[in-house]
Amino acid sequence: MNRFRRQFFLGSFLLLVASVLAIMIHCRWSRQLPHYAYLTGWVLLVAMFLLALYNARKRLPFLPLGHSETWAQLHIYAGFFTVVLFLIHLNFRLPTGWFEGTLAWLYALVTGSGIAGLLLSRVLPRRLATRGGEVIYEKIPALRHALRETAEALALGGETPSPTIAEFYVRQLSGFLAGPRNFWPHLLDSRRPLNALLSELEDLRRFLNESEQATLDKLTQVVRQKDGLDYHHALQTTLKLWLFVHLPLTYSLMICSVLHVVLVFAFAGGAR
């Protein structure tokens, strides 16, 4: 069994054991301890704090704080475990108040975005690798610009510009090359927009002479490369975008959690 699979099974097993233990403890003690909810709340808060520490680890790469992969694995499995802790803290009920409802929603969004991010991080890189080609995200605008200039030179410049190609370029290609296109089709792995464009290019061929056809071939290649660039843009953007939900809401959640602790102790005064 290889390492990743071993990690997966070990992590899942430990998660299962921890969850079962937590639920057993819940069943045994939830009625015995008058301040049970306070205790589970602290455990949950500490767990969430430890999860958030992963961000700190990422900011301190120069300290010997262990391998980020280990942290990520712990983050993932401990994250799943907090779901159990969260349900236990809520005593398997839906929260009723406005503030507590907000808190629960924040937790759900943070956890949900985390799970979504985990899935994306496992699925999208594979697709990028399968598609082939590699590009650094920050370089994409420059590359797109270069492609556009190449295409413009092919279609509009040259010694004998072809009016047919120029017209087609202005009508169809200039918009396509101007910016990232077809985000959703790329994310859903659909080649329909590319194929439509390619078949339009192919349709154009019968109106062209030999030298114009050579230009068309080069344009087609540019279109393919632009499509590849768009594919990378769509997938790499998605790989980064989920953090736009996960991270800001984590801070929100932490702030609200601290307020929750203050309110609970100020108002309940030790009552159940």
Binding site: K58, F62, S68, P125, Y137
Partner: peptide, 27 residues
């Protein structure tokens, strides 16, 4: 590449340990 999410954490870590200068190209 099947695992790499192109997050550039490696490059940032490199820069953080080398006075804010990356010392390799993730390409």
């Amino acid at each position: 590449l099947d695992r790499c999410t192109r997050c550039d954490d490696c490059v940032r870590a490199c820069a953080a340990t080398h006075d804010n200068n990356p010392r390799f190209l993730r390409h």
